[in-house]
Amino acid sequence: MIDNKTLIVGGLIIAILVGVVAVFMASSDPDGLESTALIIQGGKTLTGPTPPDAEIVENMEGKFAYSAPMPDYSLGEGMGSMGGILAIIGGTVLAFLVVIGLVYALKIAGKKNPPNGVQ
């Protein structure tokens, strides 16, 4: 058994380590969905390698377009892997905080409006 503080600190350290290792070790091949899109567009075969210049054609006609602040988990070319590490750490901590924040918000809202309506 470890206490809550160790769980949180240890858990976050493991998560951040996984993310940092991912910045250097993650495969640059397209993921399953992107690979499938490439096969369908004739950019690769089912079991063959992905050509380095393979690109997915995106038909944006009538689609919603959104530009994320840190696309592809990076802070842009200039920042290199340091940008990737910062982006991953930011996202990991943000995921952690969003859960804590939302659960507290739900609990506070629950206290204001008891489910049985009795105050």
Partner: peptide, 10 residues
Amino acid sequence: AGIFALQSFN
């Protein structure tokens, strides 16, 4: 946090 990190690891 762990799932976010794991999902970033291709």
